[in-house]
Amino acid sequence: MYEIVEKNKLAPEIFHFEVKAPEIAAKAQAGHFLILRAVEKAERIPLTIADYDREQGTIDIVVQEVGYSSQQICDFEEGEAFLDVVAPLGNPIETEDYDRVICVAGGLGAAPLYPKVKSLVDHGAEVTTILGAQRAEKLIWEDRFADLSEDLYIATDDGSRGTEGFVTNVLEELLSEDNDYDAVIAIGPMIMMQAVSDLTAEYDLKTIVSLNTLMVDGTGMCGGCRVTVGEETKFACVDGPAFDGHEVDFEEQRRRKKFYEEHEEEIEEHHVGGEGCRVQAK
């Protein structure tokens, strides 16, 4: 069992958990992910390790309620424990050889981006961060990024904070003035990572994206996390989860994300149906 030592609400529907897992904390690095099975009947859910504290023996995850399974995780409280956590999985991200990097997050992507920025800064890189969200209240960890970044830019879809528009609007403006960067790291929704990669391709600027694919085991065994990178099929769990954004077939990934849309509806109905029955019983 993996005890929750702290839970915070970061934004509407977005929760941060600090989980006791000393063995994992001892080995975690920026870019690793974990697989969590909250209760016996739950799915195995891949989540990026958003931070870790080796001394305290804790790891951090950030979860947004988007469907039944993520909501089930978000209903856990401090003192309770998740049934299974497997980690560290995937490959750590290379952060040692950079001087100037732009890091871009869309929505919940800020959580997986955070350990990369932290590691880049630890290795002496100068990081410019662009955080995007639908609206101001959905921004997460702005203070954390402000502490680490040389410059921090915000973009919201409705203009409630920072630039009105997408992170790519900000990125384009930055690059048009000065494109002397070593790399861009972009994490967020597929469509956002695709837009960033399309833009940076014009500047011939190395771009790393991190994919949150469908997955069962996380060790290469199922192949459910297949992604076309260049001409090859890769497994996100053992070959990634970070890939060259200019090589990833994002269209394919967006289609794959919709594989279980009908099942998700069925789960929702199953649980709503249950409540309906109780109402009838009254």
């Binding site: 069962v216 085991d217 065994m221 199922c222 192949g223 459910g224 297949r226 992604v227 076309t228 099929t233 394919e252 289609r255 794959r256 919709k258 594989f259």
Partner: peptide, 16 residues
């Protein structure tokens, strides 16, 4: 077409 939705490895299908 191997990465189309509806293509599984037997491992994944059976594990699920």
């Amino acid at each position: 077409g191997e990465n189309l939705n509806g293509v599984y490895s037997a491992n994944e299908f059976l594990t699920r």
